[in-house]
C-alpha cells in the first residue's frame, strides 16, 4: 500500500479525557473503515485529520501536505472532503444552494464553473431531480446525500466520512454504500462507522479504535481471522463465552475461548471486532 495519509503519535486531551492516545496510522487509496464503540475517539481522530481540531502532540500528512504549517493546512483543506457526524444545513437553502455555498467556501469563485461542479456532484449522488427543493423538505437520507455531495465538491483526494449511514433505513444505507464505494475509486476515503456490515461490504482496510487507541489495523479478512476457531454454537448460552446470543435458529452463537469439542462456526467480521474489543477489556481488567 502506498500511503496517502500518514499519522504518527497523535494525542489529544479534552479536559480529563485522553481522546487520542498516541495514534499512528497509514491510509492508502480506497475505503478504510474506522470501527469502534461510542467514545472510542473515532470522531476526534477524524476531526484532527480534517484539520478541524489540532492535536496536542504528534503529526500527520495528507497527500504530502503537512497541516502543521499555515500553507500546509491550506493545502490539506484544499484536498479534503469532509462529511461531519451531524452535518449542519441552512434549512431554507435548496440542495443546489447549499452545495453552491459549500463550493464557495472551497474557493470555487467562478460562478459558471462552480455551478457546473455543483450540478456534477448532485448528479453523482442522485439528487439532480430534487436540486431545487428546500433542505428542510428533504428526507434524512437525501440530506445525507446533500452533505456527501458537498464533501465531493472539487474532487477531493481525501474524503473523511463520519458515520454517514447512521439513521438511514436499509435501502438508503445500501444506496449510500454504493456512493461511498464509487467515491473510493481513485481517492483515499476514511469511513467511521458503527456498522461492521459497512466495513465488510465497502472497505479494503479496517482500523479498530477503543479508548483513544488503535487496537487493530489490517484488512477485513485479517480482522475476521482473529475469530477463527473462537466462534461456536450451543443449545444453551455457554457461560465461558466472552459474548453469546440466541440466533434466529434458536441456537446460541458464542464468541470467546470454546470448550473442547465445541461445534465451531465460520467467524464473521463482527466476531473479530468483538474479540478485538474484548482483548482490550481483558487488558484493562488485568
Amino acid at each position: 500500500m502506498i500511503p496517502t495519509v500518514s499519522a504518527s503519535g497523535l494525542s489529544l486531551r479534552f479536559g480529563g479525557t485522553l481522546a487520542l492516545d498516541d495514534v499512528s496510522l497509514r491510509l492508502g487509496e480506497g475505503v478504510t473503515g474506522l470501527l469502534g464503540p461510542n467514545g472510542a475517539g473515532k470522531t476526534t481522530l477524524l476531526r484532527v485529520l480534517a484539520t478541524a481540531v489540532p492535536a496536542d502532540r504528534g503529526s500527520f500528512t495528507v497527500l504530502g501536505h503537512d497541516p502543521g504549517t499555515t500553507a500546509g493546512r491550506l493545502d490539506v483543506r484544499r484536498a479534503l472532503g469532509y462529511l461531519p457526524q451531524t452535518p449542519g444545513f441552512h434549512q431554507d437553502f435548496s440542495a443546489f444552494e447549499f452545495v453552491d455555498y459549500v463550493a464557495i467556501l472551497k474557493e470555487l469563485t467562478d460562478r459558471t464553473a462552480r455551478h457546473r461542479e455543483v450540478r456534477r456532484v448532485l448528479e453523482a449522488v442522485g439528487l439532480s431531480d430534487v436540486r431545487g427543493k428546500r433542505i428542510k423538505r428533504l428526507s434524512g437520507g437525501m440530506r445525507q446525500r446533500v452533505a456527501l455531495a458537498a464533501a465531493l465538491v472539487g474532487d477531493p483526494g481525501f474524503l473523511v466520512l463520519d458515520e454517514p449511514t447512521v439513521g438511514l433505513d436499509p435501502e438508503q444505507r445500501m444506496r449510500f454504500r454504493e456512493l461511498i464505494a464509487q467515491a473510493g475509486e481513485g481517492r483515499t476515503v476514511l469511513l467511521s462507522t458503527h456498522q461492521t456490515e459497512d466495513v465488510a461490504m465497502l472497505c479494503h482496510r479496517v482500523i479498530v479504535m477503543d479508548a483513544g487507541r488503535i487496537r487493530f489495523e489490517g484488512t477485513p479478512a485479517e480482522l475476521t481471522e482473529r475469530a477463527a476457531g473462537r466462534v461456536w454454537s450451543s443449545t444453551e448460552r455457554d457461560p465461558s463465552a466472552r459474548a453469546g446470543w440466541r440466533t434466529g435458529t434458536g441456537a446460541f452463537r458464542n464468541v470467546g475461548d470454546p470448550p473442547e469439542g465445541a461445534d465451531l462456526l465460520e467467524p464473521t467480521l463482527e466476531d473479530g471486532y468483538l474479540l478485538t474489543l474484548d482483548a482490550r477489556t481483558a487488558e484493562v481488567a488485568a
Binding site: A52, R77, Y82, P84, P87, G88, V102, L105
Partner: peptide, 18 residues
C-alpha cells in the same frame, strides 16, 4: 450557532475572512 460551522472551519476559505 452557525449550522455549517464544522464544514466552514475545514474549508480553505480563511476563517477570519468569513
Amino acid at each position: 450557532i452557525d449550522p455549517t460551522y464544522e464544514m466552514a472551519v475545514v474549508s480553505p476559505l480563511h476563517g477570519f475572512r468569513l
